[in-house]
Amino acid sequence: MSVPAVVAQGLRKSFGPLVAVDGLDLEIPVGVCFGILGPNGAGKTTTIRMLQAQVAPTAGTLTVLGLDAVRDGRRLKARLGIVPQENNLDPDFSVRQNLLIYARYYHVPRAEAEARADRWLAFTQLTEKKDAAIQELSGGMKRRLILARALLNDPELLVLDEPTTGLDPQARHTVWNAIRQLRRDGKTILLTTHYMDEAEQLCDDLVIVDKGRILERGSPSALIAKHTGSTAVEAVLGWSEDGAKVTNASAALTAAGVPHEKLPDRVIAYGPQAESAVATLGASEVINRRSSLEDVFLRLTGRNLRD
């Protein structure tokens, strides 16, 4: 049995009075694509910044790739590949120079750095842009270049903080394919995202966190099966001033013991009884659909805005 990629015990981080991560216990095996999902402010970025030895924990222990994330920061960082949430490419250099100069921070010899830069530029489909200035790149190209940069040191663990936020569907799928290929090549991948379809597509296993704590853990399909069943039935009831239609429908579903969500103009019922229960509500339209990780996420973390 190999050493787990990540072992966190009682991991805490507070910034003054604000508790960002509140006693996290987590073990992630190697070779998987692992997701950390949660609303804004849930503690995702703080958690992964502790994992990558850029933020020191307030309490608890954190071992990454068998190394203490506080004491062995340098040795740990040499084995990680980081795609941060905010683009931080070096605007003073061209695309290829960005990679060559970054390789120097890992003390990769020049000739080897050039070979690796060209390899990962090809992998991220940026070869044609190798002499372009950073300012000339589209959002998707910048994300791909940051991914190429994260691969220069042949990392064992790849940490991707919202790698596809703001990308168009084509660029997103390009990044997804790259992530799938890297996972197949044996890399462990840690991913945060706000896109539930992305997590469903890519993650073998994931946690849903909120307010610095883990709410739930499992594979996407297991979480869907546990919290919503495989189907969701939406009953469209229409808008009403006082929301009475939705309130009444919700009361009926509660009486029938059917788990459900209230929206302004409809209810969403889950589970094996959903379809028959909804039939009695007098809905103007009934939509049968496969339930998704997004249903699970919203059931667990609520529908209120976070920021």
Partner: peptide
Amino acid sequence: FQRTWDAITATPLS
């Protein structure tokens, strides 16, 4: 503005 330090402290540099 450039977040250069942030990018570099993600590497083995402290």
